[in-house]
Design a protein around this nucleic acid. Structure first.
Lengths: 218, 218
DNA sequence: GTAAGTTTGTTAAAAAGTTAACAACGCAAA
DNA sequence: TTTGCGTTGTTAACTTTTTAACAAACTTAC
């Protein structure tokens, strides 16, 4: 009980990294490894070994001296912290290229997180099934979200339609929204929002590439 | 000269936000507005007005008291800071759904950043043109990157192929890589890397939705 | 023309996140 | 043995980022 409460206060960045650690660990497990050192995890994630050890300290996991961390146990523990007990269900709004891309990458790999519905305005897509996910008309959003008990919506519609799509999700009682479009949206306080915009990242990258270039010119 | 040097030391987060401010400002300009208050920008980006003012202070832009910031001027200034003088050219590795999605969202809107080539292994795609971007076979990567003077590569291939794709880009002399796959890659020191993974964000969102749920249950 | 209200620009404080430092431990080699 | 090395766990220092506080300046209302 006390331990559960502690996880509430994990730093946001640690939560992100735990998800990443787990992904890396799953790959290592596949490769037949049973233990891993902090510096190995660190190298994969482009961070320092200290940071890895600190994160693991925060979640109360102990490794073995000179042997590293037990991969299987660590995956298990990370799951206990970041996964939900019940399945968390997700809807994708807009089954264009980006929606499809997400379904592809996601592809039933997460055990406690599952995309169960897609919505689109294109009549040709309605009724089709892509990667096991059926496509519904947006008008049915309220009905499907209630029926399937969907708590997260991913917005992958064209940028201009992001706000109205967000509005629909909010009205339907969604708990969290992941917005992949470059158009920022507004949500009420009780909806958790994650804006995840591709263009910002690219422009930032371009800035630092330019900077490096300019330095080399001197 | 001195002013240019100062921009080198802008906080990373400020660079990100400048890109976002500009995007929001462009929309406001389209809507016919000429000035904007810090709290308006803040609201759009889900941050505080202080943060906006602080960022603008750092880039040395002054607004008008009780009138706000001149949108056109501010867009101009942000461009001077984050854009490169010459066009920065970008290649997309993998023209699947995600590659297409990026081309769609990007779509020639950035004036100083341009996607000029796509690469794929699928023979059916080679030679086609999507959104004005021609698709080449990966074997020609070195040739095209040299010829077009491409400095940034975006990786949108299937996750398993991310590392080998990164290797090809690096060998071809790329300066910056944006990796959209969930598989982390390794780059030498002089290549700027941005990992931009969709699954981490979704898992983080799920965690905070779960947390909110658990709290409500009590 | 004076008071009240807004908004900017800036400095200072606080919070969040990262890195450094190092004790503790245990294995391996001499 | 005992010495040296590699690794963990943890505290403390540092850096980055955000937030608070407030003076200055302009506008409007009275």
């Amino acid at each position: 009980m006390d331990a559960i409460h502690a996880f509430e206060h994990l730093p946001h960045k640690t939560i992100e990294r735990l998800s990443q650690y787990r992904r890396a660990l799953l790959i290592c497990l596949e490769e037949g490894k049973s233990h891993i050192f902090s510096h190995e995890i660190a190298r994969i994630q482009h961070i320092t070994p200290v940071q890895v050890r600190r994160d693991l300290m925060l979640i109360g996991y102990s490794g073995t001296l000179r042997k590293g961390y037990n991969i299987e146990q660590l995956i298990e523990l990370i799951g206990e912290i970041i996964d939900s007990e019940e399945m968390i269900k997700v809807a994708v709004m807009g089954l264009g290229d980006l929606g499809h891309a997400i379904l592809n990458y996601f592809n039933g790999k997460r055990s406690k997180l599952s995309i169960v519905a897609g919505f689109d305005v294109n009549p040709k897509k309605i009724g089709t099934v892509f990667n096991g996910v059926p496509c519904y008309p947006v008008e049915q959003i309220q009905e499907i979200i209630n029926r399937e008990n969907i708590s997260i919506g991913i917005i992958t519609v064209p940028a201009k339609q992001a706000p109205v799509t967000a509005g629909r999700l909010i009205k339907a009682g969604i708990k969290g929204i992941l917005n992949y479009t470059p158009t920022p949206i507004q949500v009420p306080e009780d909806v958790y929002l994650e804006e995840y915009d591709m263009i910002t990242t690219l422009e930032k990258l371009a800035f630092y590439v330019k900077l490096a270039n300019d330095k080399n010119k001197l």
